[in-house]
Design a binder for these strands. Structure first.
Lengths: 211, 211
DNA sequence: GTATGTGAAACCGTTCACAGCA
DNA sequence: TGCTGTGAACGGTTTCACATAC
């Protein structure tokens, strides 16, 4: 077994391939070359072959890749061959939108719990999930099997929310607050920070640079 | 004048510096070294100095950077020394959350228009903005001076929304739909794609790799 | 013939280390 | 002395080009 370092961005690209492959599969297309897939994703064909090579040999020389097979393999690599249970912290505007975001339903993600600090929100039902007080987090995370926590609270409370999730045993966190969070080793945080993206857009519009 | 290529990620880091500098400024701290700022942002000090060096010399050797001055300069570089007018396309769950997201108010962004296809949503007022039909886009973009368009429609409609915005004269687009959009030259698109981030999180949780 | 898989080269971004200056 | 500004070294990612296999 060879140990090669896998660029973290390669993982993101695998997700992009999954999207295009699902589209091809829906159209009934059975075989795809790295060149064709590259066009669909806007990525260099050699890049695609290299990304796949990190994990094995999935293609047939002179032919290409079988769509269903490759889709299955990439999903297995990413861990998308199971259902993931999500817990939400912060049922404000964004949190509510996430709970109601039914598009999660076709992909392997399901909300199983939602938490908030504010008493007036406790007990309300949004997207079929009853909002619980943060004090119930330890218990509910275990009961419902929450594996990934989504943080949709204000910047000031985001770190506290992360700490509570970690303490309750959650190992993966998606943070929507525009702030850098700390977490212990073997816990993972991904940040979704759209104000950074807005700023980048302003820079581009101001300078005309393609960045 | 020297032409050096500026890494696009450097622009994102400038936004991060702005956040930390605003915090320092609020605390009344007047001078900061690259080392101290590096600690706050979780970034290498040499990286910070290099990022700033792309745009000029803002520090004082032996002293550091004057917080207010550096803040002013970086904001000018990013184009954040003005108010930016936003237009929203798609007033569903996410779109509604964005309109109500009052945190935009303290940063230089303001929503001035919102559009939707669905007749039942037209005319409703959300976050002080009246929802208009997409047919009114050409007129309203000019009237209200929309500079940046936010796309919060489903994947199927995202490209159509982008085309309409571009046709109406919008040069910058933030796309929240999980799909790759095409646009003409000198138009800029930034994608906020949290399903890619979720997938990356699953990979990390599955493999235990820090990526 | 055609498309994959992969070493090697090119490219780009980060970090080091120190010269330059207050 | 202390910290910035920056050329050079380093490390990682992307692209090329071709051997390999169907």
């Amino acid at each position: 077994m060879k140990f090669v370092k896998i660029p973290s961005i390669a993982i993101t690209r695998l997700s992009i391939y999954v999207r295009s492959l699902e589209l091809l599969d829906k159209k009934g297309i059975e075989v795809v070359s790295s060149g064709r897939l590259a066009d669909l994703c806007g990525i260099n064909p050699a890049q695609i072959r290299k990304d796949l090579a990190y994990f094995g040999q999935f293609g047939v020389r002179g032919v290409g890749y079988y769509v269903k097979e490759l889709l299955f393999e990439i999903k297995k690599i990413l861990g998308l061959d199971k259902e993931w249970r999500l817990g939400l912290v912060g049922v404000g505007n964004l949190g509510t939108a996430l709970l109601k975001h039914t598009q999660f339903l076709d992909t392997g993600y399901t909300f199983v719990a939602a938490f908030d600090r504010k008493p007036e929100r406790i007990g309300t039902k949004i997207g079929g999930i009853e909002v619980a007080p943060v004090e119930a987090m330890n218990r509910l995370v275990k009961e419902k099997g929450v594996e990934i926590g989504l943080i949709a609270v204000s910047s000031e409370w985001a770190q506290a929310a992360a700490d509570m999730l970690v303490k309750a045993g959650v190992r993966g966190i998606m943070n929507f607050a525009p702030v850098h969070l700390e977490c212990p080793r073997h816990r993972f945080i991904e940040n979704v920070d759209f104000s950074l993206k807005l700023d980048a857009l302003c820079y581009r519009l101001t300078t005309g640079r393609a960045v």
